[in-house]
Design a protein around this nucleic acid. Sequence first.
DNA 1: TAACTTACTTCAAATTTTGAAGTAAACTTG
DNA 2: CAAGTTTACTTCAAAATTTGAAGTAAGTTA
Lengths: 190, 190
Amino acid sequence: MIQKLLHEGVEVETSIDGYDAANFPEITAEKQGHRHPVHTVVVTHFELARMIERVNRRFASLLRTEMTKLGVEDVGPAQAMVLLAIGDVELSVGELLDRGHYVGSNISYYLKQLADGGYIDRVASQRDKRSARIRLTEKGEQLCANLRNAGGAYNRVLARDDDDLRNLEIAFQTLHRLELVWGNAARYGI
Amino acid sequence: MIQKLLHEGVEVETSIDGYDAANFPEITAEKQGHRHPVHTVVVTHFELARMIERVNRRFASLLRTEMTKLGVEDVGPAQAMVLLAIGDVELSVGELLDRGHYVGSNISYYLKQLADGGYIDRVASQRDKRSARIRLTEKGEQLCANLRNAGGAYNRVLARDDDDLRNLEIAFQTLHRLELVWGNAARYGI
DNA sequence: TAACTTACTTCAAATTTTGAAGTAAACTTG
DNA sequence: CAAGTTTACTTCAAAATTTGAAGTAAGTTA
């Protein structure tokens, strides 16, 4: 078996050239529950990035489908993500920016559409009249509730047992770490 | 402590309402190396989806920055991802579609730009003249190599020890699972 | 109170994605 | 083998998303 080490290759048994790793579905199935996988594979940040891109695409189209089913025509997946990001709290545009690492003008644009569609309310804060306070309207909450409801099925499939839960959590934390590393790098250089 | 159970909430100690989970950086730091985290948090697929969206955004802007540094002006982050997806093998457009769950017309569009920019070569397959064979040119390989090179620093930061590697791998596999679940759902309904 | 900063909005342009329609080659079937 | 079908991909226009520069109004500071 050819062992082609990557720059940062460590602990390689079944090696990959940086691209084929995406095609190892059997690992996913076989490894459930293992702590020390027999075939350790090096995952580079590019592979993760490509995976993240794919998964993101999938989720967006899932959202679109779900919304079509619900008969919602005036909200795209991106706006739906904004609604989900708002959730059931009242917050300012700035807080929302932090929640999703959005760009200001982008959120402004979406908020305008969502406000026009009646999904959110914006009220100027009394304290600071520059700051807009955002919250979901009844309609917006209903849409989120419907999405959440539809999402229940996925959660049941994804989180079948303790092991799944643990893995989901590790995935979440690891992504958070990627977020920090990539985010800081973007600001300060690595 | 208020315990607000989610639809699919299981094994909750420190509960969250589906939104605040994104703001637990201390967990990431504290848990490195723990197998059975003390504060188990339920991660729903929406939270993961939002995290994925954010991380994806971050990576795209990182790519953009990296490319600007390299002085590459005619390739956006999306096209760069396509180049990375092609890698060092020769493949057909169809295979490329599978690699990234792209939409055909989209890839066609990017391949045209990349071919115009001299980053890829397309040759019609002899076997099947409908099928285009794609591969990176010297220039394309150079760009990928540069990106990979720049990526080395991130890999070193992200994969410091065995625990990191394990977590990255679990994240990768879990994302792959999300990919399958969300993808199948999109095609066949859950 | 003048200058600066913050919080957000607007608008135009660029980029990315979608969807419908088209083309040519390969396959299938009567 | 001719006609119809499917596959593999391309093209084009329109829509959706994202960016970036410039603007506005309110708060802050010197």
